[in-house]
């Protein structure tokens, strides 16, 4: 796709905006629509756009498949870790208010952390899925 100079320039401008917007949706989810699920998908969308224009190999150099696989599990583990942390602090599983002295602050803190876990897992899973499909395509195109 080297010949599409307009697409390349516009996407170079857009990709940082997409990434920032994904982070905004992620960390502003307590005040506005959004949260980990939506943010994760948007974050991946930026990588997908980049890969469509500059090739899968380029993207995989920035975000290797192994990292995506590890992070898919990592986000879920972060979520579960919060659950165990609340249990160690004397609450029930995922009872966030024991995390901080103030009940409300504890709840908010817990929600931010688990939303981060959700976002990491969703982004990494979506990227892994994309790699799985696109990787086979590249293999087949290489044709040997």
């Amino acid at each position: 796709m080297n010949q599409y100079i307009v697409l390349r320039v516009v996407s170079r401008l857009l990709i940082p905006v997409i990434l920032i917007f994904a982070l905004y949706v992620q960390f502003h989810g307590e005040y506005s629509p959004g949260g980990g699920f939506q943010a994760g998908i948007m974050f991946t969308a930026a990588f997908v756009v980049y890969s469509l224009l500059f090739g899968l190999e380029e993207v995989q150099r920035a975000f290797p498949p192994v990292a995506a696989h590890v992070l898919s599990a990592g986000g879920a583990l972060l979520y579960i870790a919060v659950g165990y942390a609340t249990m160690l602090l004397g609450g029930n599983f995922l009872e966030y208010k024991v995390l901080l002295p103030n009940d409300q602050a504890g709840e908010t803190f817990g929600i931010i952390v688990i939303e981060l876990g959700v976002g990491i897992t969703v982004a990494a899973v979506a990227l892994s899925l994309y790699y799985s499909f696109a990787g086979r395509f590249v293999d087949r195109e290489a044709g040997d």
Binding site: Q60, I114, V118, T121, S128, L129, G135, R136
Partner: peptide, 27 residues
């Protein structure tokens, strides 16, 4: 919260399934 944890695990399991069938896709 536990419901959402379940959803995250489902998403993760789906990814594992696809990876097992299609492979990791590393160039």
């Amino acid at each position: 919260g536990i419901d959402t944890l379940g959803e995250v695990i489902v998403i993760f399991a789906a990814a594992v399934g696809v990876l097992l069938v299609l492979g990791g896709g590393a160039v």
